[in-house]
Structures are given as structure tokens and as C-alpha cells.
Design a binder for these strands. Structure first.
Lengths: 336, 336
DNA sequence: TAAAAAATAACAATCGATTGTTTTTATTTT
DNA sequence: AAAATAAAAACAATCGATTGTTATTTTTTA
């Protein structure tokens, strides 16, 4: 039972003015006298008037809304990124329309469509694991809707991408374990279809090469980086006699490390671990987990700020290719 | 540089039909012949037509959008709840407009206004810590916008609320520690202005009473439940010679428990801990943390399903007062 | 004081889809 | 074949705010 809402026409009628005058009066346009403005605002207030953004959007062709599509919402990193975006956009008067692909390309495509139908002013996207065809983003270009990728970005698309230096982070984590004396270093990662994992692997390989250690494909485990996956991976860590493990996610790393200890290996003495993201869990697990600081909130803020600047016309994101947020290795007991 | 979009008028012109026929044809209305429908759909496809939801919303007075306001987005529990909501609503063709109050009543009020301006079909809210005046929700009632609270709900508002049984959970956690022999049990909690904490405290007190233990106000610590707060609280736990600690959040509990161990107390032998939420961290910390399973995803799903059912007219939420999601104590090593 | 200039406010089209009503066309029935 | 009915499509108003243009006051200037 939606009530009929008060409109500018109602106010106009009450005051014996034209609707256009109400519209201008409400936003302090100089062609409406101060006195009339005060009357309009007072009456609007009294009548419980609330501007209908839908009508305004239709007319102005701008919704003050930004669409966000992430692989999954129930992840600490993603929630940090979104929190950063929300802070920046809400301060600028923009709303956030959010959806999750749940790692499926079909859902992602549906979301893009739906958001374009909702006429979002811009789109911020982190790719689903199973997205390989990027055709569903073509519509953004066609409609002129700014598109920015973050974290999980496409390999070859002429579009602004916000990432950390994943290759470097993978290198640093691996290099650190090598420096600590590890020689049989395993690498546990999410699907290599996604840049974040593929590049971390590249960094891992580079570190091995730099230490003149031959890459062993058996040392690579690809899974979904959940707790359960970490526990499963622990058996391989033990059976492969690994003395170091680079995991591309703290949750999986923590679970794996705990299970490895349960299986009788001592961490860090026998097996050293590094994780990824600097999740809270990395600080509270025993031993504390060496990890890569991933500034999620900042990534969200940067992505949002660039999109807003582009919408204001201050920046042209089509002139930008890549923005790299600074990450860093945080060394804790799990690798010493 | 937004392109001009294809409209039903463009399609109408191309086919020599009326716009109304295009509109009906696109949604398979029976007054448009099968053959014409096929022609319309094919042409729409060819012209890259995308329905403008804004225009439709204006006309139909329904946006297929649900607003969500949470105290903060970067919390694992909240992200689980939102994930549950997103799953249910997206399957029903609804979008989610999300904002965070960052625990401030003013932001919350602003979000309500903004969402009403955006004409959301319904509103799902979890209260900010500092909200005591609920006047900003009055507008929802006035406009007839369905309003459902979850997790952090108002004490006295005639509105549907989705919660767990916080009193019972607080009782169970405390009772369990008592059963394990603890007698000096501290209670670490967020602001008692919010039902979730106030009721857990009530459960704590009831458990003490049931064991004929006098309530000691010095055993209550109120903080913001962060890691840092947990670490700070650890000193009090030690100095008060507590042998049991009920913490209303796993992150704070894990941090506190770790710090208490660092300070030389043995857990669970000397001090037993229980947390809240069944966060991943509760499983990975050492010793594993006894906690209350808080089904966040399910809470989000239930909230969303009820709102959708109400919008469809299948349920009248104004006839419902409270829906309690089942929670349960999960016993792990930290309390044995 | 009349004309020019400036300040206010009204007029009217527009954004794009929806939907009740009417008209036209096609199909049945007698 | 004419009348009655059904099917298909057109017409036109509507949702509520915005904005370019025009009209009316008011103020200033000559």
C-alpha cells in the first residue's frame, strides 16, 4: 500500500506557482527570488515532500548510482573493498548498486545487463572465476558507461584496472621463504584463469629461478582457497616434504598451516608459510602468519575516486591503463 | 559521453508499429500476435535495445530495488548476511542498493532519506550503534515502504525483526562455562544500546543467577569488539583473575584469548573462552574457540524472502513481529 | 515618464515505458 | 453475405522532475 507521494505539482498548486518554479526554487536557482525560495522550501517541508530521483534520473539521464559486481560478497577482502567504495561514493552523493556473480560468468553477464538497464552511471567490476568471454562488457563501451576493473581484472582489455602488483607480491613471498632457507616450496592458489593468481604464480616462478631452483609442477596446488581446501592441501604438503608453502589467501593458509601442524610437522621450523591479504586471521593464528598486506579499503577508495573524477570530467579513465596499489610483505613467525 | 539509447519508439518507427505494441510485444502480452512478437524481439535485438528501467519505474511506481543499510560493510557477519540477501533477491529479479551508516545515526538517517528518494520498494536495516532516535524511519511508514530490521533491531517498534535468540545464546555460552567449572566469568561486549549485546548480557546474568553466582559489574567490559579492544581487555581478564570469558564477537575473542595466553595464562585450563558468530577465525585460532553459531547467510535469506513475499502480497509483514533464526553453541577446545 | 534592462515566473516540451480505451482488421456465426 | 465476435494494433494519457524559451513584473536608466 504505497501512498501517493507529494510532488512539485502539489506544492505548485498550494502556492499558486508553476511547477518549474518549484523545481528551481528547491535547488536554489538564482532565477527564483529568495523570498519565493523560502516559501517553497517551507511548504515542501510542511507537505513532507521528497524528491523523486526516478523522475529526475529519467529526465537528466543520470542516476547518481554506481554498479558494483564482485565474485562473492561474503569475503573479508571484498567487503573491505566495497566498504572503501561506499565511503567515497556516499560522500559524493552517489549510491551503490551491488551484486555478486558467485563466480559464474552467466550471473556476471546478467548483472551487467541489469545494471545497464538500471542506467548506472558507471560500473566497477571484479571478475568471476569462470569468466573468459568478456563480450558482456561490450555493451558498456557501446552505451558509453565507464567501466573500471579492480582486483580480478581482464588480461587484455583496454580498460582501467586497479590492482596490486601481484607478480611482485608472489615474488616477495617466495623470495622471503627462500631467504629463510626453504627449498621445496609449494604454491597453493586459486584458478590461474584469473590474473591475481596467475601473476602471483609468475612471481613465484621468478623467485625460484632467481635462486636457481627448478620449477616443479607437482608443487602447485589449484583449489578454491577455502578452509576445507587448505585442510585437504595439507596432506600434499606433508607427502611432498615441502619446507615452504606460499598460499594466495590467508584463510586457506591458516587452515592448511594448522592441519600441517596437526599432522605432526612443526611450523615454521620444518615448514614455513606465507599467506595473502593480511586478513585478521593472519594475526590471530598460531604461529602468526607472514602475509602480503592487501589494502582492500584503499583499493575500493581509489577505484571509486577515479570513477567519480571521470564522471565529473576531471579525469578521463580511457587515458589510464592500470593503477597499482602498494602492497607489502608482512613478516611474522610462520616463516622465521 | 553517454550514447543515446535505443527506445521502443525507435523500434516502433523501424517496424511501422505503435510504441505500445512494442512494449506489449517485448513482454509477450497476448494482444500482440506471435508473429509480430517475433519481429519485435528480433528488431530489438538487432538494434541493441535495452529496456530503460528508470522509465518503467517512473510509470509503474516500483523499482525492483531493495535498500539495505548496515552499520558497517567490512565485517564478515554483515557480508554473509548481505550475500544471503543478494542471492534471494537477485533470483527474484530485484536489485540491492547498499549503504553503511558507519555506526552513526546521522548517516543512517541520510541513507534512509536517500533510499526513499530512490524509491526503493522496501528497506532492510541493521541499526547503527549510536541510533537511539528512530524518527528517521517514520518516513517509511508514512510512505508505505515496507521496513524490516535484522540483527540489530529496535527495542520498541512495531515492525518485523529478524534476530537470533540473543538472550538464550548469552545464557548458553555462560552456562557452558559454568558447567565447565568457571566461576569468575567476564563478559566482553559491544555497546548495550543495541539489543544484540544487551540481550546477551541478560542471558549471561540469568546463567549466573541460575548458578547462584552474584553478578559483579567489574566483570563487564564494553568496547568496540575489535582486535585491539580484545588485546586491551586481556589485561583486565588477567588482573581480575577471571577463569572464564564470554565475548560477543569471535574476532575480539580470538585476539583477547591470544593475548591472555601471551600474558602467561593457560587456555582453557586457567581461563575458558567463548566467542560469538562462528567466524572462520574461531576454527583456526588455538585453542579452537567455543562459539555461538550465527547463521548470517540464512538470516539474510530469511529477511529477503519475507520482504519479497510481502511485496508479492503473499505475506503481510505488519502481521509479524519477530522471526528468530536458530543459533546454537558450538563447543571447541577453548572452553574444555 | 517612457524606454531599456534586469529579475521573476510561467509555458511547454521532454525523458521512455506503461496501460486503459478506442479503432481497425480478421474470423466466426447465422 | 451480413452481423456478431474475437484478435490485433493504434491512440493518448500518465508517471514527476528538468530546462530552454517566452511572458510578465519590477527596477533602472536616459
Amino acid at each position: 500500500m504505497k501512498q501517493r507521494e507529494t510532488t512539485i505539482y502539489d506544492i505548485a498548486e498550494r502556492l499558486g506557482l508553476a511547477a518549474s518554479t518549484i523545481s528551481r526554487g528547491l535547488k536554489g536557482h538564482h532565477t527564483v527570488s529568495q523570498q519565493t525560495q523560502r516559501r517553497i522550501i517551507a511548504t515542501a517541508e510542511a507537505m513532507g515532500y521528497r524528491s523523486n530521483s526516478i523522475a529526475a534520473s529519467l529526465r537528466t539521464n543520470s542516476t547518481q548510482t554506481i554498479g558494483v559486481i564482485v565474485p562473492r560478497l561474503d569475503s573479508y577482502l571484498m567487503s573491505q573493498i566495497i566498504a572503501g567504495m561506499e565511503k567515497v561514493t556516499s560522500e559524493a552523493g552517489y549510491n551503490l548498486l551491488i551484486s555478486q556473480s558467485r563466480e559464474m560468468a552467466a550471473n556476471e553477464a546478467r548483472s551487467v545487463q541489469s545494471m545497464l538497464n538500471s542506467r548506472v552511471d558507471a560500473l566497477l567490476v571484479s571478475l568471476a572465476e569462470h569468466t573468459d568471454d568478456l563480450a558482456h562488457f561490450e555493451a558498456c563501451r557501446a552505451k558509453g558507461v565507464p567501466l573500471v576493473f579492480f582486483d580480478r581484472v581482464p588480461a587484455d582489455m583496454d580498460q582501467l584496472c586497479i590492482t596490486i602488483n601481484n607478480e611482485m607480491a608472489g615474488y616477495q613471498a617466495t623470495r622471503h621463504l627462500l631467504d629463510q632457507g626453504a627449498r621445496q616450496i609449494m604454491f597453493i592458489s586459486g584458478s590461474l584463469r584469473r590474473n591475481v593468481y596467475e601473476q602471483r604464480l609468475a612471481g613465484y616462478k621468478r623467485a625460484l629461478t632467481s635462486a636457481k631452483i627448478k620449477f616443479n609442477p607437482e608443487h602447485i596446488i589449484i583449489n578454491d582457497l577455502t578452509e576445507e581446501a587448505g585442510i585437504r592441501a595439507a596432506r600434499a604438503v606433508v607427502s611432498q616434504h615441502a619446507d615452504g608453502v606460499v598460499v594466495t589467501n590467508d584463510i586457506c593458509a591458516a587452515a592448511c598451516m594448522n592441519e600441517v601442524q596437526r599432522l605432526g610437522r612443526r611450523v615454521p621450523q620444518q615448514v614455513k608459510f606465507t599467506g595473502f591479504n593480511n586478513d585478521i586471521i593472519s594475526r590471530q593464528v598460531t604461529p602468526a602468519l607472514t602475509t602480503i598486506n592487501y589494502p582492500g579499503i584503499e583499493m575500493g577508495e581509489v577505484a571509486a575516486r577515479h570513477v567519480l573524477a571521470h564522471l565529473k570530467g576531471n579525469v578521463d579513465i580511457s587515458q589510464l591503463e592500470n593503477i597499482v596499489i602498494k602492497s607489502s610483505l608482512i613478516i611474522r613467525e610462520s616463516s622465521l
